[in-house]
Design a protein around this nucleic acid. Sequence first.
DNA 1: CTATAAGCGAGACGGTACGTCGCGTCTTGTA
DNA 2: TACAAGACGCGACGTACCGTCTCGCTTATAG
Lengths: 199, 199, 199, 199
Amino acid sequence: MSPSHTPDPARRSPQTTAAIREAALAMARESGLAKVSIEGIAARAGVGKRTIYRWWPSKGAVVLDAWAQRLEDRLHKRLQSAQSDDFEADLKQTVKESWLEVIGDSRSVLAGLIGEAQHDPDLAIELRDRLIGPARDRVAARIRRAQDEGQVAPDIDPYRAIDLIYAQLYYRLLVAPGPHDEAFTESVVDLALRGLRPR
Amino acid sequence: MSPSHTPDPARRSPQTTAAIREAALAMARESGLAKVSIEGIAARAGVGKRTIYRWWPSKGAVVLDAWAQRLEDRLHKRLQSAQSDDFEADLKQTVKESWLEVIGDSRSVLAGLIGEAQHDPDLAIELRDRLIGPARDRVAARIRRAQDEGQVAPDIDPYRAIDLIYAQLYYRLLVAPGPHDEAFTESVVDLALRGLRPR
Amino acid sequence: MSPSHTPDPARRSPQTTAAIREAALAMARESGLAKVSIEGIAARAGVGKRTIYRWWPSKGAVVLDAWAQRLEDRLHKRLQSAQSDDFEADLKQTVKESWLEVIGDSRSVLAGLIGEAQHDPDLAIELRDRLIGPARDRVAARIRRAQDEGQVAPDIDPYRAIDLIYAQLYYRLLVAPGPHDEAFTESVVDLALRGLRPR
Amino acid sequence: MSPSHTPDPARRSPQTTAAIREAALAMARESGLAKVSIEGIAARAGVGKRTIYRWWPSKGAVVLDAWAQRLEDRLHKRLQSAQSDDFEADLKQTVKESWLEVIGDSRSVLAGLIGEAQHDPDLAIELRDRLIGPARDRVAARIRRAQDEGQVAPDIDPYRAIDLIYAQLYYRLLVAPGPHDEAFTESVVDLALRGLRPR
DNA sequence: CTATAAGCGAGACGGTACGTCGCGTCTTGTA
DNA sequence: TACAAGACGCGACGTACCGTCTCGCTTATAG
């Protein structure tokens, strides 16, 4: 009796894994997530479909994995960026970095992934765990410090405060069109801070 | 002088149109937009696929049309709901009505449509024109009045103010999970108003 | 109670009829009967589909009608061609005229019609009544005269004799490829006559 | 170096192939080739349409393949039927066997295939290569022997002689209606032999 | 000399089948 | 046993035509 056939990660081929990730991400950027297919990734990566299904559950998962990994690499290089004592400046800097520089040109990949997550609960969870959650957590710490220092009203849940900021970004990405530039990210923070400051 | 086959709306069969809309909406509610197919709609409505393609460009467009029309019907009955002089109460009432009562149980249909709109620009435009835009416009007028009456800071663009509110709703719908209840909608308005009030 | 709705030929529009025939025949010649469609004929003739269905049961019937009529026109001009006393020469002349000159370049239309007749019994009957039967009857008379004059064995059924000739022509048209030229038609008659002559 | 997707016959599934052939032939016999569809074959054989298109170019090709293979099987069992020294008897026996016994009840399938071949050149070639050509070749050898033995005029091309016989059979099948029985096949050979014998 | 019933153009409609794409599972042979 | 390759059953795609139907319009007798 085969014990549910779980593959052994130790024997996973690193080259193959890399080729699949690269192909998936490239295709998502070039043509949009909707036009990516497992068959397409397999062909482009020179890989059997079986191999993809062995390690990922869906095309969304492949693209997310490929993209998240790249982001994590980039963030590692950046996020030691020492935070100052100016809460507003720090916040603006953080939003600018993460939304404009790190995500930057592949914002449509993110949009596609969130779109797909609307009918793929596993992908939704993966998305939150690998991309959205970590970003929120990073900011939450800075907000708590600002509350301690009296720059943010103490009765506000830090995560609702983050919502107030990120919601605006995602809303523009997914629902209402508009430019994603520095003027916008600053306005986002300004507007949010108006409500967060102690009265 | 018409080069490509534009069908004549005057000859469109009302029963058929209704049957298609009904089937599409029912299926979207039962199984989610992703499991809806033109073929399925056609079968359920007892209609040829050609007839659907003649009048709608995609399954998303059919569902959107069906759903938007139903919302418009419901709103017509409601929106005479006279607005009071209490801006905060009005806002809370409006948000509660539109997000909880009118959209209510088919919020996942909306999520699915927005998801699909991420790779279907025509659908995105249609969505904004029929659903999102009108809702924004309705609120914008009330906000301008509030500015005139000094309840909202005059330097704020009413549409950015609306963003601040709706962004939170859509963010919870699409990106970060959480309950959609009256406590939530009130908190949304409260948080937004903190930043909108004149200082 | 409408009496089965038989259309009244007296009110049939001659221009429309001609346009349909012309379109059908032209399309059959250009692209082969298989690529002809009622919709195509209607579009090309500038005519409603209904009008075609009113007067013909199938596309094969339209093409057959159009083509048979053209043949009949041509034959009317020719067939007074006085027959001589030389049976062999007469036969060769008749075959050459009908198979090479009259049918000539639209032999593939005939092939298409016979092909279609294999699954359309009505068309098969129409074919025999309008094209194949009359040709046979014309030759039968000449054969009987040849029997009277002792040039053909008297124990042979004239129609079997005709079969012997035409079968060769149709066989080459439908089953075994080969040129349709004067050498062939002469050889056809020669070979048949070897068996028909009295011993 | 293969540019377009040529599938590998070694990996072809024998069960699937057999199921498709069986379904195709059964349907052609039951309802006629015209009512056979790839979709229908696929459904009846429990097979994906793709699989049919992978190995055959058209429904005609499937039916021809299925039918020809069955004929070849039957002929293998028969054709060792030792030929006698009586040319006329041999010929009558051969025609009777092939046209009445082997083809027998599925003559309409043959008619349908030839009908379809009128607008499908690939099918026409396949037909000749697998069905018509081999039958002719088998007879040609016997005719040459008859010429050596002086029973057939030496100036006659054996293939034209065969034409003379088979043309009559196909003519009755495709063009002029009539019974296909032993009286007919004998009359066919009799009539042909009248012209083939040396004078 | 209308009026009323056809023929007619146009083409929407419910269908069937087309030939293609991609899914997720499977089998086969190589390293 | 991981992997490349790709055949397989399946479901859906978007298109082509089928034959029936319903619209206005025009045309040509019959009241």
